[in-house]
Design a protein around this nucleic acid. Structure first.
Lengths: 203, 203
DNA sequence: ACCTGCCCCTGACATCCGTCACGGGTGCGC
DNA sequence: GCGCACCCGTGACGGATGTCAGGGGCAGGT
């Protein structure tokens, strides 16, 4: 039986190397490529002939969800497994929509990772069970595209004027979108709204 | 020569297990304990007879800096190496003040971790060189204790009224502290001030 | 053709926020 | 003792913010 060829993508070199050490202990797994940026995944996977890509979400260049979509689009035979720190319901949904075959949070015991890789390689879907329930209940974002845009800018604590400049809108419109987003998130200030939206994976 | 006995503390089980796999590859290193909470470090290190503790900063119970201080206080012969995601200057300073022997960010190549452990065990100090410069230049926090308190509450985007309630102060006083903190951080809003203070490791 | 939802903008309002000036209290080092 | 820094509070000011009521435009579904 042929070994499963893996690509690891994580911006933290130490974690990347440690995961490689962990997975290389398995006889049927082989790490054939490692990258630290999301926009290098497709090229590296193609060159190394990877079967499965392990993708972290938080990465420079392109995040793991974009990378998963790119792999699904350009390398149809290659499966992707998203491995992330944050078990946000919206992340799971977005990962599945991006064509990922699996979703694992970094809280899971390390012994299960190799099995998750094997299942994904076999064509099965791997989803963190506790997260799946949350995702089904309240996963989809109630925010409109513009509301998500202004909330993204609001994450840094920017003023209305700067958000308006960044999104090329009138300050009044920005305030309307923010007010709407605050209502939808059940919060009282834009900072809280941005915070909860991020925790839900909506932005 | 005796092997170096290691304790790993990281709240993410997957990362913890992967680091264990990485370090167990070295003949002179042995992982003898793993914990996922900061407040279990001392007991586990004592029971397992660890020589060196690898501590992540972000952990429930007690963070890695508190854990390092506890180890230094209660297990004088045991050295600690702080391994963290965020290379914030204030973190390095606080780690050293807590009695840690080393400070490594998760961006460093995985091949260097084992060497860092050996150096720490040998009594040397290990510090990420790029971070050391930053820390010397602008590491110490300009914030007073109260300013740090209100900024911590402001991180979530709370209103002045809620911050005041949480810190048991008058709303006016809270606004004064916030205004002062905004001035010291060179920002324009409390959200930005809280953000930069966190990035500097001041809170 | 009509309704609905989202987008963009304007204007007005009450409230909140950031700033400043001020006074009084404490503890520390010179 | 004196200055100094920090703490806590008050009061007032201008500007920012969140909310509401409108108006118009543009797509998709009935």
């Amino acid at each position: 039986m042929a070994v499963i060829r893996l690509l690891l993508a994580d911006d933290q070199a130490l974690v990347r190397g440690a995961l490689a050490a962990l997975l290389d202990l398995e006889n049927d797994l082989e790490v054939v490529a490692q990258v630290g940026r999301g926009d290098e995944v497709v090229a590296a996977a193609r060159e190394a002939g990877a079967d499965v890509c392990l993708l972290d979400i938080e990465m420079p260049g392109a995040d793991g969800l974009e990378a998963a979509a790119a792999v699904a689009r350009e390398l149809p035979g290659v499966r992707t497994l998203v491995v992330t720190t944050f078990g946000r319901p919206g992340y799971l949904r977005r990962a599945m929509e991006a064509g990922a075959s699996g979703f694992v949070v970094k809280d899971t015991p390390s012994a299960e990772l190799a099995d998750a890789v094997r299942r994904v390689h076999a064509g099965l879907r791997v989803v963190d069970p506790t997260l799946a329930a949350e995702s089904l209940s309240g996963g989809t974002s109630p925010l409109t595209a513009r509301e998500a845009d202004v909330l993204r800018e609001a994450l840094t604590g920017a003023t209305v004027a700067r958000i308006a400049a960044a999104v090329h809108l009138s300050p009044g419109t920005v305030r309307n979108h923010l007010s709407s987003a605050i209502g939808k998130t059940g919060t009282a200030t834009r900072a809280e709204a941005a915070r909860t939206a991020r925790e839900q994976g909506w932005i």
